[in-house]
Design a protein around this nucleic acid. Structure first.
Length: 584
RNA sequence: GCGCCCGUAGCUCAGCGGAUAGAGCAGGGGACUUCUAAUCCCAAGGCCGCAGGUUCGAAUCCUGCCGGGCGCGCCA
């Protein structure tokens, strides 16, 4: 094979290679750098549209410009054909000779052609954030699942990732919670909380608080004691926090997310930093008095009367607002942890609050470039009726109930479709399929939008679902089992010639671009859509190109394509926090 | 009143300025002595909320409306 030239190139994706070659040609023709705008096409493998944009600037016909570009471009080692079509589109058909070494290269390493980043960020990801003594619900599902995917993608690319579970472990509700704990006794409280019966514990405290003035007064005094550092009160507070953390960890384990005990950075963690934050804001001249409270007016925010909108850092009663905690967290993360990227996986309704916090942090100098903050917002989960997802009684849906039902439904499906699996394997497959379906339903939708929760659709083996992707991979592994083969990963080239093989190859080679794009945008549904497209390309290949019945090099190359597909599917799902069973 | 998000096929969703707007589901028609039919193939289905604007080119960018959701001082 006379393709040495390609082997010597630095790692690059197919699309980038085409882009670079065309960019030089465009520059030569235009006299200045001009974007080739290369993208996938339905008319060829890729198309470049840059000539159209140059027509006016150069005062020439776009088709002539395109022809000129093609003359200048060095594409013969990459493309089998380069054609101009329509008003001046350059249609590019990639040659087998170009695909073969790129596929082989991708197959060789563990990383599937995706390099580690050259200059890693230190990324703090703020997500999940349940409240002590309160049940986790669908809102936490989104934050947890999206945050977890962010952790996995950024970590895999080589960034330094710090998980920050912003546990709600401080504030006025703890007065009533601790008093309620005292009322029912420590052991009973620990028992209820460890069972995960958080809702009834919280509700019981709430009911007493609302109905009983004496209790309310006790609760109020207890808050003061807590904030004053009273030993007994702190011990009881710890009891609540510890029990809740244990419970949350159990939920995280079942959900198969990366969070650990060490990742709890609750609000209380920042307590000692609040006063310094306020003092520093004062020293910087940013602090204002407003109706007795200490506030900051970040530039560019107004309230309903058109007046400047304040971020409250210290309340009239001397207590600190959550704005103070969020500011302290930013300062801690950029200064102590030396974070360069801050992610907040928090619902969209809190966007304005965080934009204000970021602005104040910038004004205070706690958030300077290259450090940046990104609100990874998300919409609501809707029920079948298109309204906020709730139980029939109107309560929020407990996250554990969702997990239980997902696994139970998956178990029933697996039992029905594949009775041959033994008990243990079936349970494990059901877990991966159920949890995977739950997560994938969330991640495969644009996170800025609300999405409709639908068991039937998410657990379907058809369409853009986790089970479909898992099944596609399981079928590939089944080919290897059936044939008793282990595909080679050290081929010098992986040759593709059939249209279905080529289509699959080009899809495979797009993996890097998709992953790096998602690492920036955090639009995980783009990875999901990619994986679905890959699985679709694979099934087309699977229908048309026999693998085990092929012979010689064709068989070897097809096995390698299968292997690559299976690995990309597993890796892609893995980046989304979803497991893939070998059999199902 | 101000701000944010959303509006694409009957339903659920893709579409990061490019050619004839794509999937899945549901409904219609097909394919199992075949590497897992849990899959696949075919046909049908659209004033891309409306109206302007920018552009060689707009579902995509800008402005204004309409419709839905959510925020807007001491809860987080």
């Amino acid at each position: 094979m006379g393709r040495r030239g390609l082997d010597c190139l630095p790692m690059a994706t197919l699309e980038k290679l085409l882009h670079d070659r065309l960019a030089s040609a465009f520059e030569a023709v235009a006299g200045t750098p001009a974007p080739p705008t290369v993208h996938r096409s339905q008319y060829a493998d890729f198309q470049a549209d840059g000539a159209l944009a140059l027509a006016r600037q150069l005062g020439r016909k776009p088709r002539d410009i395109a022809a000129d570009v093609v003359r200048h471009a060095q594409l013969d080692d990459l493309c089998a054909s380069v054609e101009i079509s329509g008003p001046g589109f350059i249609n590019l058909t990639v040659s087998e000779g170009a695909l073969a070494p790129l596929l082989a290269e991708m197959s060789r390493g563990e990383r599937l052609g995706v390099p580690l980043v050259a200059s890693p960020d230190t990324v703090v990801i703020d997500y999940s954030a349940p409240n002590v003594a309160k049940e986790m619900h669908v809102g936490h599902l989104r934050s947890t699942v999206i945050g977890d995917a962010a952790v996995r993608v950024l970590d895999w690319l080589g960034h330094r990732v710090i998980k920050a579970n912003h546990l709600g472990d401080w504030g006025t509700p703890f007065g009533m919670l601790i008093e309620h704990l005292l009322d029912i006794g420590e052991s009973e409280a620990a028992h209820e909380l460890s069972l995960g019966d958080l809702n009834s514990f919280y509700k019981a405290a709430r009911v007493k608080f609302d109905a009983d003035d004496a209790f309310k007064e006790r609760a109020r005094r207890r808050v003061v004691a807590l904030q004053g550092g009273d030993k007994l009160t702190l011990r009881l507070w710890h009891l609540l926090v510890d029990a809740s953390e244990k419970y949350f960890m159990a939920v995280y384990d079942r959900l198969d997310v990366c969070l650990t005990e060490k990742d709890f950075f609750g609000e209380s963690f920042y307590n000692d930093m609040l006063q310094p934050v306020v003092s520093e804001l004062d020293r910087l001249g940013l602090l204002r008095e407003s109706e007795g409270a200490k506030v900051v007016f970040p530039a560019g925010f107004t309230n309903r009367e058109g007046e400047p909108l304040p971020l409250i850092v210290q309340k009239r009663d001397g207590g600190f607002g959550y704005g103070a905690t969020d500011l302290a967290a930013i300062r801690y993360r950029t200064q102590e942890l030396e974070a360069t990227r801050l992610l907040y996986v928090v619902g969209l309704p809190q966007r304005q609050h965080f934009e204000m916090v970021y602005e104040v942090a910038r004004e205070a100098g706690w958030l300077r470039p290259p450090a940046r903050a990104q609100h990874v917002g998300f919409g609501s989960v809707l029920g079948p009726d298109g309204k906020m997802f709730r139980t029939r009684a109107g309560d929020t849906v407990k996250l554990v109930d969702l997990i239980d039902e997902a696994v139970a439904r998956a178990a029933a499906l697996v039992k029905e479709k594949n009775p041959d699996l033994d008990e243990a394997e079936r349970a494990e497959v059901a877990r991966m399929v159920g949890i995977g379906a739950l997560k994938y339903a969330d991640l495969s939708n644009d996170r800025n939008k609300d999405y409709v929760f639908d068991w039937k659709r998410m657990l379907s083996f058809e369409g853009n679902t986790a089970p479909y992707l898992q099944y596609a991979r399981a079928r590939i592994l089944s080919i290897f089992r059936r044939g008793g083969v282990t595909p080679a990963r050290d081929l010098a080239t992986i040759t593709v010639s059939e249209p279905a093989e080529r289509a699959l190859a080009i899809e495979l080679l797009a993996f890097e671009d998709v992953v790096t794009g998602v690492a920036e945008s955090l639009d995980f549904h783009r990875l999901a859509v990619y994986l679905y497209g890959l699985a679709t390309a694979f099934t087309a290949f699977y229908e048309r190109c026999p693998v085990l019945r092929a012979e010689g090099e064709v068989r070897e190359n097809r096995l390698a394509l299968c292997d690559l597909t299976a690995r990309v599917l597993a890796r892609g799902l893995g980046l989304l926090g979803i497991g893939a069973p070998d059999r199902m």
